[in-house]
Computed example of a mutant assay.
Amino acid sequence: MDAAEEARLIGLARGGDFRAFGHLVDAHQSAVRAFLRRLTGNDADADDLAQEAFARTWAVLNRFDGASSLRTFICGVAFQYWRRERRSSSRRQARDTAYAELSDTEAEPHARAAQRLALRQAMDQLPEDQRAVLALCLGQDFTHQEAAEILKLPLGTVKSHVTRGRARLQTALGISAESAP
């Protein structure tokens, strides 16, 4: 969807047009869901958070000022929902880890499942902001600037989080900096 069409749909949605908002959701849901899957490690929780984020975006669409992309705005809303959810539910973390171990080992060869579990555990050890930055920039190909807008962090902090977070993941996974892509 080009910027002009998106702007047209935003205008219609602000006027109460649910179909127009539905087209916006269709255009951005895969990016939002993928970002949240990387943060949560669980498809079901990511989908629930995405639904909440889109519902909230509908309610606050009038606050979208166009300074960033709508995708960035929605991911920012989604990040806030994830952060609140993460703070309030340590039991969910234990359940997600157990679920991930089961689903990974059933669907993938053992070595691949072990790699995915190790990556998920290494991501879980990162500070929240650093984890979110890596999920956006490395996992979803958001630019550093877009990540800064979504997470409401200074650009330099985002760049630092990418560098330090990547190094921490490489260390946790036993990957040397020379052999990393």
Results as ranks from 00 to 15, higher is better:
97 T>M: 12
111 A>I: 13
161 H>F: 13
67 A>R: 15
94 A>K: 13
16 G>M: 07
72 T>M: 02
30 S>Q: 14
15 G>V: 02
55 A>F: 00
107 A>T: 14
56 R>D: 15
103 S>C: 02
10 I>C: 04
61 L>H: 09
21 F>I: 04
156 G>E: 12
124 D>E: 15
50 A>I: 01
130 Q>Y: 05
150 I>P: 01
172 A>I: 04
135 A>D: 12
108 E>A: 11
35 F>W: 07
69 S>H: 00
44 A>I: 08
128 E>V: 15
124 D>H: 11
34 A>I: 03
39 L>W: 01
5 E>V: 09
163 T>K: 14
93 Q>A: 11
168 R>M: 09
107 A>H: 09
142 F>S: 01
71 R>A: 02
149 E>Y: 09
7 A>I: 02
120 R>Q: 12
125 Q>C: 10
149 E>S: 11
126 L>H: 11
34 A>Q: 13
51 Q>S: 10
48 D>T: 06
124 D>W: 08
45 D>P: 01
4 A>S: 13
104 D>I: 00
83 R>G: 02
27 A>K: 01
142 F>V: 00
93 Q>C: 01
123 M>K: 09
114 A>N: 03
177 A>E: 14
101 E>T: 11
54 F>A: 03
109 P>D: 15
31 A>K: 05
26 D>L: 08
141 D>S: 11
177 A>V: 12
119 L>G: 07
41 G>D: 09
53 A>R: 03
79 F>Q: 10
142 F>K: 01
133 V>F: 05
67 A>Y: 01
141 D>Y: 05
45 D>Q: 14
60 V>Y: 06
151 L>H: 00
14 R>F: 06
104 D>H: 12
62 N>V: 11
176 S>V: 08
129 D>H: 10
94 A>D: 12
89 S>T: 11
50 A>G: 02
62 N>A: 15
43 D>I: 08
131 R>I: 05
